[in-house]
Each structure stands twice: as structure tokens, then as C-alpha cells.
Amino acid sequence: MYTSAVFEIKNLKRQYGQGFLLDIPSLVIERGKSYGFVGPNGSGKSTLLRMLAFIDEPDEGTIRYHGNDSMGERGYVTEDRTIRVSVTMLLQEPYLLKRSVFENVAYGLRTRGMRRGLRERVYESLNMIGLNPETFSHRKWSELSGGESQRVALAARLALKPDVLILDEPTASVDRVSAHLIKEAIKVVRKNYMSTLLIASHDLVWLHEVSDEILRMHEGLIMGSEEDNFITGPWSLEDDGLWSTTLHDGQQIRALKPPSPTSIALLNTVSTIVTTERPDHLSAQNILAGRLMHIYTFENSERVKLDIQVANLSLNATVTRAAVRALGLMPGLDVWVVFKASSLQWQ
């Protein structure tokens, strides 16, 4: 696997929605990796992905693609064919051209001037996405279900064997079978084409299974990777010199002095310890009761991410598969989350 950068983003700014500003001072996307983007609606995921697909342009800043400045003269979205044809994106609401499934999948190949081997490539792509070419290639765009349309749209991108494949909510409007087939296709693309993937999704379980790294976005900012929990204040000074914030059920989180009473604290997911019985006599200042909600596993990794609900706060903790087995962790179990006051870093 290469580790060189596919995209280097510097000081990217872009207005979007109603008065929001996408603001990314610096971001490097490494070659061959799969990045998941999570965040609420309106957090700027789609805007960022469209700019990386070169179908939208920033107001300020640069996006370098394999070290080349991707912007054309006067800042217009690049017309450079070699760049435009090696990055492709599946839009949030896919649109199929008013022609057969075969012609939809072949369209991108035809724009690249491909004539020979067209049929093989189209059939291969349809197979990858679980659509039988013999049955589907002659169907019209209007004869497909929502999930089938989404898969045909994806097949049209897979056929291009893209250097970068960008997917915006690929499973938002599809059935479970389609979501599974899309996941399998993504795995094949990574293995066979060495493509870099950028995927935005609300389906966190699904997203974890196809991503190496998760980036969190909030109101136009990338709030670090998913290695961090965010704990918002307000923070107030306690008698013992520590600062605390109170959760809805009365439990307190204790920290060292914040820069301001409204600062946001970052808690790395590896800094947390999870137990199934309340520990006693610990130096750690934070021992919080919560409930294990989800367990996420990662592709080719011993890492496991736990999603624990502590009052109104959703905390993530990273543990190993071995720990999950030893503690007999399963969703619904009451657990304790332990971390030191000094583990909280200020943003």
C-alpha cells in the first residue's frame, strides 16, 4: 500500500447552506486508505466531497491532487481530463441517464474514448454489485427499484476503476441487501483497484466496516478523528481545585482547569477503561455509570469501538477483541467508564 498523499487540502474555505462556512485549515488524504465521514446533516460533508470530486470549487484555499494544483486558471473547477477522469463520485441522490442499464454503466467509459472491451468491463461492474448482466443490462432506467438504481449508479463508477472513489450516503435510500452488496463491492474495489475511498454515511455500523479511519464533521469543521470524544461544558470550579460539568442524571465529569468555562474537552477513546463492576480505590477521578449501546468492529483489526451511553453523553471507548471476550461485553450491558481528570485535553 502506498502512503503518499492523494489530496492535500490547505486553508480551504467555502460557504454552504444558509450561512455556514466549511473551514478546513489542513487535511491530507492518503493513497489507498478508506475514510469515513460522519456528522449531522448540514455539517459540510457533501460540500467537501463535491470539491474533492472537482465538481464544485472552494471560495478560498487549495486542493492539491497528487501534488498538482487541481484548480484551473482563474480558479475554475479543473477541466484537466486526466484529473477529472481519475476521481469519480456517487452523488447522494443518484441520477440515471434515460437509457439502458448497459449504456448508463458504459457512459463514463465512452467519455474516456473506450471502444474495445466495453462489454466485458460493464458486465464485470454489474457482477461486482450483484446485478446479473444478462438480466439487467437491457433494462431501461425506468424499470429499476431504488436499490437497483443506486447499484447501477455505483457500477457506472466502478467501471472506471477510479483512483479515488467518493460515495455520498451510498446506503441512505437502499434496502439491506443492497447495502450489503455495496459494502462487498467497496471491498473488491479496494483490493483490486487500490482505490482511495471517501465515504459519507449516517449508517455508522456499515461505515465502520468499510473505513480505515473516521473523520467527524460538525458545522463545517473537521472535529478530529473518531479517536476523540467531545465533552462540552459549562465547567465550574470545585472545592478540591478540579473543574467539573454535570450530566443530566447528576453524574459529574472532572477535569483540570479549562481555558474558559465553556471550553470543549477532548477525550481520546484509548484513554478510557471499561469495566463491568464498579471499581474502588482508584486514582482516576472519573468513574461513570453507563450502558453499552453498540460494538463496532473494524476490517482487519483487533480494535473494537464501544459506544457507551452515559446519561445524555455518548462516549466512545477503544478496546481489543480480547477484552470484549474476557468481559463478556454485549450491547445492553451496564458498564463503568473510567478515565483520569488529566486525560481530558482542551480544544
Binding site: 477541466e79 481530463r81 477522469v85 469519480t88 456517487l90 452523488l91 441522490e93 457512459y107 467519455t111
Partner: peptide, 13 residues
């Protein structure tokens, strides 16, 4: 969505 879609498939103007 038409214009964006064909752009993502590499179509020039």
C-alpha cells in the same frame, strides 16, 4: 442532478 452526474463520470463541457 443531471449536470453534476455526468461531470462525475468525466464528461467535458
Amino acid at each position: 442532478r443531471f449536470k453534476r452526474t455526468v461531470m462525475t463520470l468525466g464528461a467535458d463541457r
